[in-house]
Amino acid sequence: MAIVGTFACEEDFLAAAENLKSSGFDTISLLSPVPVQEAQDVLGLGKSPVRHFSLAGAIIGAFFGFGMCVVTALTFILPTGGRAIITVPPYLIITYEMTILMGVIFTLIGFHVVSELPAWRNRPYLPCANIDRFVVVVENAADSEAARAETIIREAGAVEIQHVEDSE
């Protein structure tokens, strides 16, 4: 069962999140219409692992770009303009572009991996969370735990509390 609490103002929302976290609830989602820095701090989200994807993508792209040029040149020995077969300066430009292309694509993949999107299942959600409400969701709570969570959310000043069945 999931408990969904709606808040009208940011402080109440953050208070509920902090209390839930300190009471040992780990499966909480904090929905907000705009990014809230404090909510991210509550969940302890520091540096995002997306950055590893970006770096890996850029490095792979650089090697791939240069490698593609060199392998092409060696596969088809077609001299042009009296230049060498492996002409480094123009290949660096291709390398540069491939670095950026792969960097961007890997960052995109990283985003999908880290944010767990696209979502393949239904998750508790209220459309008002995308307009002007803040929503706290406690997922997969046992019945006794659920009651405790509900109390914390109510005490923090929730406008509305709903119970949603977990969908698998």
Partner: peptide, 8 residues
């Protein structure tokens, strides 16, 4: 959904 993790 606009969760803190997604925004982050």
């Amino acid at each position: 959904r606009g969760t803190a993790r997604e925004w982050h």
